[in-house]
């Protein structure tokens, strides 16, 4: 059985991020694997090591602070899960929880990058790329700039919308990857929108490399967006 933890489900679920957990569980079940999804939030007892996959999505800036404050109190248990090999995926501004600092506050310190909050917001469609996933589409909606070494960044940007409403020039640091920890500032159900990324996590969790993977609507959704964004490159 695969156990999935949707962490801070009622606090960090600003852009439909619960879809990431739902689609992952769905695909694993389609492979005949039993899946249990558990939601935990502030004040709950959480034994992180009980879970094979720990997901946290995006929240408001205030909610991110609450999540950080709560998670720091549980750092040793969280460390244990990381060491044990639980797969971690944090998306949207939850990525900032994994870095060294969020403004003046210490974060969980898995990455050496720091997050700086701005009073302006960067919003825009993006296409990013790396060797693991290929081209990934999504949307960034943040008021945080990342300071860190580009080597730690998970993705390279291929396209960033920069219209009049993208008030803040974003920097080039997008996403974070270290062993079994993954993060991206892309908001929303990015696993739904990017079948290759989803397949990667399905494969990691199921320990199956080759399996039939046929979800035409998800694939079409990805292709429609990729085409629309590439036309703007």
């Amino acid at each position: 059985m695969i156990r999935i933890l949707h962490l801070y489900n009622d606090l960090m679920n600003l852009y439909g991020e619960y879809g990431n957990v739902a689609v992952l569980a769905d695909r694993l079940k389609d492979l005949g694997i039993e899946v249990e999804t558990v939601k935990k939030s502030l004040g709950d007892d959480i034994c992180f090591s009980d879970y094979d996959f720990i997901y946290c999505g995006c929240g408001t800036e205030k909610n991110l602070r609450l999540a950080l404050s709560d998670l720091k109190k549980r750092k040793s248990e969280f460390d244990e899960a990381v060491k044990k090999g639980s797969i971690i995926l944090f998306t949207g501004n939850a990525m900032s929880l994994l870095g060294k600092k969020l403004d003046d506050e210490d974060a969980l310190n898995y990455g050496s990058f720091s997050s700086l909050t701005s009073d302006k917001r960067y919003t825009g469609d993006v296409v990013v790329k790396n060797d693991i996933f290929g081209e990934v589409v999504g949307f960034i909606n943040k008021c945080i700039l990342i300071e860190g070494s580009k080597e730690e960044s998970l993705f390279d940007y291929l396209y960033k919308a920069n219209d009049e409403d993208a008030h803040v020039e974003d920097n080039e640091f997008e996403g974070f990857h270290q062993n079994n920890i993954y993060a991206s500032f892309i908001i929303g159900p990015l696993l739904v929108k990017n079948p290759v990324v989803l397949r990667h996590f399905v494969s990691l969790l199921s320990n199956i490399k080759d399996f039939e993977y046929n979800y035409p609507y998800a694939e079409e959704s990805y292709q429609v967006t990729l085409k629309a964004l590439k036309e703007r490159m």
Binding site: Y15, G16, D165, G188, P189, K193
Partner: peptide, 12 residues
């Protein structure tokens, strides 16, 4: 008014 291909809102 503007272009976006962002569809996360469908999940809400």
């Amino acid at each position: 008014k503007y272009f976006t291909s962002e569809t996360s809102w469908l999940w809400d």
